[in-house]
Amino acid sequence: MVELLMEALRQQPRQPFPPPPPPPILVEPLNNGDIITLTQKFNKLKPPTFPRGLQPLKAEAWNLEIEKLFEVFLCTEEQKVLLATFTLQEQARRWWMLVRNQQTAMAWAKFKEVFYEKYFSQCVRDRKVTEFEQLKQGTMTVAKYEAKFTELARYAPHMVDIEYKNARKFEGGLDVEVLDRVSVLKLEKYVDVLDRSIIAEADVAALKQVKAPVIEWKGKRPGSNFKKHRNNFYTLLNKRQNTRSSTSSSQGTDKPICPECGKRHNGICRRIW
């Protein structure tokens, strides 16, 4: 029985062993000369600095600008941390020195996590999500509304993760007059909704300009009441002046002529005295 089992095992095809994993790629540490050269090349791109304390929006703007530079300035994840922290100043630099003493090596993803915990907390991001949820065009133009929409959308990616949801969210915040002209088209792409919204906004503005002169002629012009009262005042004043002049002239003709001086006056002539 044992011999039969052994014979069966010999007849089975042998499975090849999996290949060993490739050896890890070792990155040689940079010496001081390489670090200086790398930093000088990075500074030629004029990276932004982040000097002050708890300013969430400026902290996020700094991170976005740094990551934009890393798209064209190729380096390792650890080198990204080295270069980015080189731009920290004042309070931010002192904070990084404390963090660096606690952790010897840090990749870029870990640095962003630690940096955001300090300077762009979760409560601030939650407020941005709420602001995006309640975003409406209001008195903004479509262009300004689109810029605000794009700015806040990154805080709530779950609301705009597909094209249809992105289009519906943007369309739902449009002004009523613009929305009435866009929603009937049932557009599914965000760029199409944006394009038609700009056209609809221009149509609404042109329609208001056409109706504006009719509305102005129906009502009274500003200041018409003031001019009317002013004209009435000058008319009354002229009447009073005319009345006084006529009275004084009539009174002057009623005075007798003095035989002593030959002038018109009442009473005894002064020449007698």
Rank of each mutant, 00 (worst) to 15 (best):
V182M: 05
K263I: 00
E28H: 07
K165D: 02
K255F: 02
W96H: 14
R230H: 08
Q55S: 11
K169L: 01
L26S: 03
K148P: 01
L57A: 12
V176P: 01
P16G: 11
L237R: 13
N43S: 10
P56L: 04
K148Q: 14
E133V: 08
L30C: 05
V210C: 03
Q79D: 11
R271Q: 10
T141Y: 06
V178F: 02
C258K: 03
Q251W: 00
P47E: 14
K118S: 09
I215F: 11
F120L: 15
D254T: 08
H158M: 07
V124A: 13
K144F: 03
I268P: 07
E163Y: 03
N238L: 11
E163L: 03
T139M: 10
T49I: 09
I66R: 07
T130P: 00
P18S: 13
F50T: 07
V178R: 03
L26K: 03
A92N: 08
T253D: 08
V129K: 14
V2L: 13
R154A: 13
A8L: 10
C75L: 03
F17K: 15
I215Y: 10
R93F: 10
R100W: 03
K228M: 04
T253R: 15
D203H: 04
L9T: 10
E131A: 10
Q241L: 08
T130L: 09
P213Y: 03
N166G: 04
P256F: 06
D180R: 09
R125L: 07
W62K: 11
V142T: 12
T139S: 15
E117D: 14
D34R: 12
L4N: 09
Q55E: 10
Y164H: 11
I199Q: 12
A59E: 12
R125W: 05
R125Q: 15
L83G: 05
R244I: 02
L185H: 12
Q102P: 04
E146L: 06
V178W: 02
W108T: 01
E151D: 13
V191C: 05
D161G: 07
F73H: 12
D203E: 11
V184S: 09
N242V: 01
S248R: 07
T141C: 06
P259C: 06
V214A: 15
Q103D: 07
L45K: 13
C258M: 02
A153H: 09
K211N: 08
I268F: 06
A212Y: 10
N43P: 00
N31D: 14
M159K: 12
S250Y: 10
V193C: 03
F73Y: 14
A156C: 02
L64S: 12
T76F: 02
S250E: 13
T104W: 05
R100P: 01
E133N: 08
G252C: 05
E77R: 12
K255M: 05
H158K: 12
C123D: 15
L83M: 09
T76I: 03
K218P: 00
K68R: 15
K46F: 02
S246I: 05
T39F: 02
P24T: 00
Y164T: 08
I257K: 14
S224I: 01
R240N: 06
K148H: 10
